[in-house]
């Protein structure tokens, strides 16, 4: 149990630093940004309680915010993602899957994993850019940002998945 949490904290720091120090600084064409740190949340096992997910999500978002000088925005979006993750995941796995299932290509096929990731990314990006623009008066920039960021992040998700061990 302790080992699990130590590994989780290590991953937490790894993802947070990767996001804060590398990916958050890239704004492709001024619209697209890769939010790879969400993989930490998406990879948590199926039976992770909602409260635990929420706390992980909030802290992760807050850490990224602290480095990115955007207090609250990532925290809010990541909390929303953490809140919805379990219900989204349930739609892509079978009843027979084990409780401690760790979402991935090898556990729930390419299609299921891609669908799960895309929907989560969309939820996160919509919330994030809504909070960033803080207005619904600019639907086009919002749409472009959400779509491009999701696509770009998915690219990195696929790459990561190709290199993970079975």
């Amino acid at each position: 149990m302790t080992t699990v949490y130590l590994i989780r904290i290590r991953n937490f720091i790894l993802f947070a630093m990767l996001q804060a120090l590398v990916f958050s600084r890239i704004h492709l064409f001024g619209y697209a940004t890769v939010y790879i740190y969400l993989l930490f949340l998406l990879k948590l096992p199926r039976h992770t309680s909602c409260n635990e997910l929420l706390i992980w999500g909030f802290l992760l978002g807050l850490t990224v915010d602290m480095f990115g000088n955007t207090p609250g925005i990532n925290a809010a979006a990541a909390t929303v993602l953490a809140f919805t993750r379990n219900s989204v995941l349930e739609n892509f796995i079978h009843k027979g899957n084990p409780d401690n299932l760790k979402p991935g290509v090898h556990t729930i096929s390419w299609g299921g994993y891609m669908g799960y990731t895309i929907i989560c990314m969309l939820i996160f990006n919509v919330v994030l850019y809504l909070l960033d623009l803080f207005s619904i008066n600019y639907p086009l920039p919002l749409l472009i940002s959400v779509a491009s960021s999701t696509v770009l992040t998915m690219l990195f998700v696929v790459v990561t998945e190709c290199f993970t061990r079975k």
Partner: peptide
């Protein structure tokens, strides 16, 4: 109970957003 946690965390985030971001707080 996770709903309450969710609302509390979102509330904190929102407070942070409005408190520390010039553009958002202005809006």
């Amino acid at each position: 109970n996770h709903w309450f946690l969710f609302i509390i965390l979102e509330g904190i985030s929102f407070m942070l957003i409005v408190r520390f971001n010039n553009y958002q707080s202005a809006t």
